[in-house]
Design a protein around this nucleic acid. Structure first.
Lengths: 209, 209
DNA sequence: AAGGCATCTTGACAATGCTTAGATTTGTCC
DNA sequence: GGACAAATCTAAGCATTGTCAAGATGCCTT
């Protein structure tokens, strides 16, 4: 019978094991953290044999890449939302930075997988910076809106990169206890994020240069 | 016979296996990267049985901690040197930042171990921020030298933390190919580091606020 | 000299990533 | 409609890993 699923051409045995494996991996990630994420555990969680994933992913790294891919999509979306909802034009950059750091705080395991250095990635994934609605371009375009010269490509990329570095650094540091008393002193975690980011010229109201 | 450290066979017990294991680990790290650093490989490199390390370290994590400890010492030292050798007082903060990023660039595997999140570390290690000659205090004291109010503890810690976040973020990003053309455009890698750091108010000539 | 103790080895266990061979289902072509 | 090829899954196995329990080995103190 060529019953199958309407538009999808993927429902052979299991239905859609590839999808199920990614979901299982993300479930395990949230529940037990990155160190507990073994390929066999994912297969177990999805209810298939330990070798089944190899028909959908070349190796464990490719599964992780697929999971990371969805993480980048979520980040792009969160950044787009923050940009759209920012009160004032001058607040947009900070709103983007806070959104970035909050995403990392709310999805710590996923964030780790996205930047996992154990897989050989000599660059950020394409969809983090190429597409028009990518996080990178949200930052870049917002800098232009804030007054940066769109023709000075180098300066613009430098500023965008600086913002990205600052946000990433803060995202990785924010979980350390070292900062707990600072968070309290400035009135909460988000205020702390803003306090740190405000030390970066790119996140100030005035455009760089 | 207490001599017998001759060329071929292993000595009586072993002179200082703990030391030898740390050295072997660092050798493997530099040669094959962090993913190749297994406890058994370290034992093999040191010429002992796979279970020998357990008489000197509780588990693999404790070996890694010892390796990271030496990494932090090296970082502290590099920061101290950069601070001492900085041409002008206004250049000190940037010199510290560049020294930090260069350390990460020159010891990428070691740097990863120092920040490795797989081990349960809810904070930076003590010696990275407590001792008077720690990297953290080098940054803090330099900010005061540059004019920051030493009595406003909160602002001072915020600024120090901001500098640390920025440097760490840049250190982790700098290896991505994404930045290669920027490095070329601004005239080399160190110039790129300075270019990124100059977007952070804490690294500017004037003290924050 | 003798026992005590730290150190190191042997052997083992469970878990992991991955491969090969075989089984089962599905789609396609005549 | 039926045979054949391809896709999907399982079973079994290999090499490697972290860790532990027992036993061997050499050093030190008494």
């Amino acid at each position: 019978m060529r019953e199958t699923v309407s538009a999808d051409n993927r429902p052979y045995h299991h239905g859609d094991l590839r999808r199920a494996l990614i979901d299982a991996a993300r479930r395990l990630l949230e529940r037990d953290g990155p160190s507990a994420l073994s390929l066999r555990a994912v297969a177990r969680e999805a209810g298939v044999s330990p070798a089944a994933p190899y028909h959908h992913f070349k190796d464990k790294g490719e599964l992780l890449d697929a999971v990371a891919h969805e993480g980048w999509d979520m980040l792009n979306q969160a950044m787009g939302k923050a940009r759209a909802e920012a009160k004032s034009l001058g607040d947009r950059m900070v709103a983007l930075g806070v959104a970035y750091v909050c995403f990392a705080r709310d999805n710590p395991s996923l964030y780790r997988v996205m930047y996992d250095g154990s897989r050989d990635k000599d660059d950020l994934p394409e969809h983090a910076r190429r597409q028009d609605d990518s996080a990178y371009f949200h930052v870049r375009d917002t800098l232009v809106e804030a007054g940066a010269d769109p023709n000075d490509e180098i300066s613009l990329e430098l500023a965008t990169s600086a913002a990205w570095c600052a946000a990433h650094g803060l995202a990785e540091m924010a979980s350390f206890k070292l900062f707990d008393h600072l968070k309290d002193a400035v009135g909460g975690e988000e205020a702390f994020f803003r306090g740190i980011l405000s030390h970066m010229r790119v996140f100030a109201d005035q455009p760089p240069k």
